[in-house]
Design a protein around this nucleic acid. Structure first.
Lengths: 224, 224
DNA sequence: CGTTTTTTTGAGAGCGGTCAATGATGGTGG
DNA sequence: CCACCATCATTGACCGCTCTCAAAAAAACG
């Protein structure tokens, strides 16, 4: 209905991950009261356990959310690209940490304002709901990946997911390091690198640079 | 069975998986309008993609929620023990399938009734909120397990988790098969069996039967 | 242009998966 | 009550994938 634009041609504007203007979700923009912040590479955006006072909307760049185990092992929970929102928790506390991947521009909107807006504006309320659903679904899909698939399947699924979230269909651009990808997929970074090399040898992908990947044969990346 | 223990710690009654009366969450009970159903071993409770018309509350027995990949590989998303509720989705559709593990008694409460009750009763609303938070957290913890840990750490964490959710502290009882556990942890069932055997050789656990495990040295199971 | 970080590539080992056989367990019917 | 059968669990042997360690190559940065 009123959200047709948002759902049909979703929220990703960036063709190549270079800083550019991105449209903010109309529901989020309507709330007003937000403000933008710039973050440098690897800079903390919020920490696990802190109060969740804001929703974070990526304007440009990218963010990662993650948890660390006591011994330092890290599990990246998700990557967040321009046009996407993260950091919304059902309760008042963050259960993951968040960092900027490269330099990024993030728009912060106070939770309080969001909740108020949701009460008077059904579209905002629906949007909040959809965020929660989407996050749950993302997590379950991610779990499928982590638990039962080979390295090739994991990396393949990752590439397809990134491609899906990128408008410039021709080439996926990866703002994150191999290490980030490895911690996202539950692999060693060397395995990620090797798997990509294998895909390239097989002619499934072409790498313009190590951060810019052309998917030549998407079908070969899909799960068996 | 011992009902005294039940009143001390309301949620879990079953010492040994035998049918017994379990107290329903007060918030859920207050809604009324629910009804009970019995399920046989491996019987479907609901399917992935179906309408999510009910909340499912385990009275006795146990349930598993899971997803299957096209090629048959299965990822168990969660086990649900007496006193726990599952099948609540933020939107109107199930995103996992659910089956009864053994014979079980499940109480179904219509979502519509829940939503109505939540509007007039703040306690019910809070309870719904807490369910969502808990599920999100469970999923993220599960992800940590799947991605970055060894078989021993996975099985250890699983045992500790089951112990935490069991009132009869002395011994954990596992209603599910080794296959179920394997699909939950992202391992082969043989690996689960071997790991349990190793724990027993090391004196960390004692197995009264293969479904009933005594944790002798919990510290040895905790993550490094 | 030197320095640092990131990525690639190699060699080797170990963990866990697969295949296969044996041992328990529980339910059913003679 | 016991024999039988189906299911589940255990154990063994072996192999391959992925991790670890190590070093070179490439890219990013000042």
């Amino acid at each position: 209905m009123d959200l047709a634009a948002a759902s049909a041609a979703p929220r990703h504007l960036l063709a190549a991950g270079r800083a550019a203007e991105t449209k903010v979700d109309p529901e989020l923009a309507g709330v007003g009261r937000g403000f933008n912040m710039s973050f440098g590479p690897d800079e903390e955006i919020f920490g696990d356990g802190e109060d969740a006072a804001f929703a974070y909307h990526v304007v440009s760049g990218a963010a990662r959310t993650f948890r660390v185990l006591a011994d330092g092992r890290r599990q990246v929970v998700g990557f967040h690209l321009p046009g996407e929102t993260f950091g919304l928790e059902p309760d008042a506390t963050h259960h993951v940490s968040a960092e900027s991947v490269g330099p990024s521009e993030i728009r912060l909107v106070g939770r309080k304002h969001l909740d108020i807006a949701a009460q008077s504006d059904a579209a905002v309320a629906r949007w909040l709901w959809r965020q929660a659903t989407g996050e749950l679904d993302r997590l379950r899909n991610h779990m499928m990946l982590l638990g039962r698939q080979s390295a090739a399947e994991k990396v393949g699924a990752f590439l397809l997911e990134m491609a899906r979230r990128t408008v410039g269909r021709d080439a996926v651009d990866l703002p994150m390091t191999r290490m980030d990808i490895a911690d996202y997929l539950g692999l060693a970074l060397e395995t990620v690198s090797r798997t990509l090399a294998k895909f390239e040898r097989e002619g499934v992908i072409a790498m313009a640079s190590c951060r810019r990947i052309q998917i030549t044969n998407p079908a070969a990346l899909a799960v068996a």
